[in-house]
Amino acid sequence: MSGTTHNLKRMYRFDLTTRLVAKLKQEEAVIGGIGHSNFDLWAAGHRPQNFYMLGSMGLAIPIAMGVALAQPARKTFALEGDGSLLMELGCLTTVATQAPKNLIIILFDNGIYQITGGQPTPGAGADYVAIARACGLATAAWAANEAEFERMLDNALATDGPHFIGCKLDAQGPKAQTERDPAQIRDRFMRGMGTKKNRTLG
């Protein structure tokens, strides 16, 4: 685990997301942030416990916190891009203060707004792990490569959080696009959370 951005491998978001999904055996919740973060979550294989954000840039972590507080026994992931996190940086202090033990934040940092044409973010030189630590998430760390990402996931799944795992991304685009039906996305996820149980008719 690294606390600096030196010598970090730039990794492929779809590959990292696939590695994450492969480790989820306990119906863990995953909130995919807007844009390519949730596109690759969808592409990695739909699960009833996946939520795909179609809008509201920056809210993946606060949404995941609401889920995590409501269901403290379920590990809950937020997959958020660096551009999105910049919209709602303050939420890291809220997470640190509430300190939900079951919340795991994965930051996908490519330094650009990839979905709108690859423009650099105004935080391209920022160290988001250092920011997370300074906000009170003491164990925040960068994953240096894929093997370390998997070890950090194992640790996050096995220990109390909140956890924050930073990943530097390469320039590859997403593997697919999520289907855009917000009512269906919400309904499926609630059934995945066990909070909606009636049968679907027809």
Partner: peptide, 23 residues
């Protein structure tokens, strides 16, 4: 669970996540 927010935006997300999680 009382959550003091850095901006009201976070609250809309919190309320949504809470509902998804059954609260």
């Amino acid at each position: 669970k009382v959550v003091s927010l850095t901006t009201e935006e976070e609250g809309v997300a919190l309320a949504f996540g809470a509902w998804l999680g059954g609260e």
